[in-house]
Design a protein around this nucleic acid. Structure first.
Lengths: 155, 155
DNA sequence: CGTCCAAATGCAACTGAGTTGCATATAATT
DNA sequence: AATTATATGCAACTCAGTTGCATTTGGACG
């Protein structure tokens, strides 16, 4: 099943055998309508803006529950903050890569980019999932080159 | 220059134009001798065990300084905690991948594994660095299968 | 319908890695 | 040895995430 956008939050929750509460439906709605991964805070903001404020602990625990069920992904961490997104469209062994801009700090989802699975793993290691994080300059910031962190000034 | 292991901490610091203090030399020594990326806490522990305890803020600021100079990498985050390792052996566009075990939680450096650079980036994006994180079961834990996080129970 | 109970929610208080301000100590230059 | 910019230690702060507990509620069952 990969047409979540066309399913109601209620049906999605039901199909994951999760209790259907107003709070959870709202959170799911926000995630369904977002083009990018969101932090707990961003979710809280958007809920408040829709006159449907929710306690931050409830958001925390709902996401925790969605995570366990596999409905949602902890997509990436930035400055020690997790970003969440629906797990739809994620392949079995890898989600789409994310791209972070050094200049503006924004992170983009790049569903169209493919990275081959790692090869040459030592015997014994079982690869279940591969996560790829790209860094560089986004189209908006490409014009005026940013400070790219030094890699090795030793000559 | 990529033979850091054969250089003294003092010479390495000098070549990066960093002030050479006993604290920094000790931290560098720890990193030089470690096979894997270390957290600030792990570095503190090892310093203490060598009768060379250092205030955690000093460790924090030294690593910050090493980072800026490009001597060290923030290799990966686990449970919101950063791990640091020397930047030697890191290629220009990607460091070696890291492998985290679902079962025991340990993280391994896999310098021998190669992952081709992402292709198909939308026009305008400039890729500077690619970070790859692998997840699965390590050789030790492979025997008794762990709880692999569900991906999509929806049928 | 109404009853009931496991699960969800809100509040307050806690956790802990990281971070900052400031006074003191020290590296390294003169 | 004197000087000064830099590093260090201490204490106090930040803040996303986390936990405990009392209250509310979804939804199953009568």
């Amino acid at each position: 099943m990969s047409h979540w956008r066309e399913m109601s939050p209620r049906r999605i929750l039901q199909s994951f055998a999760l209790r259907c509460t107003p709070g959870r439906k709202s959170i799911l709605q926000i995630l369904l309508q977002s083009e990018q991964a969101l932090t707990q805070d961003q979710i809280a903001d958007r809920l408040a803006r829709r006159r449907r404020p929710l306690n931050k602990v409830t958001i925390y625990r709902s996401l925790e529950c969605f995570l366990r069920a596999g409905l949602v992904h902890q997509a990436y961490q930035q400055d020690r903050i997790w970003h969440y997104e629906l797990a739809h469209r994620c392949g079995k062994t890898q989600c789409h890569p994310h791209f972070s801009c050094y200049e503006c700090g924004r992170t983009f989802c790049l569903p169209e980019v493919s990275v081959p699975l790692a090869t040459g793993l030592r015997a014994g290691f079982v690869l279940v999932r591969q996560k790829v994080r790209l860094e560089g300059l986004c189209p908006d910031c490409q014009q005026q080159p940013a400070d790219v962190p030094a890699e090795s000034p030793l000559s």
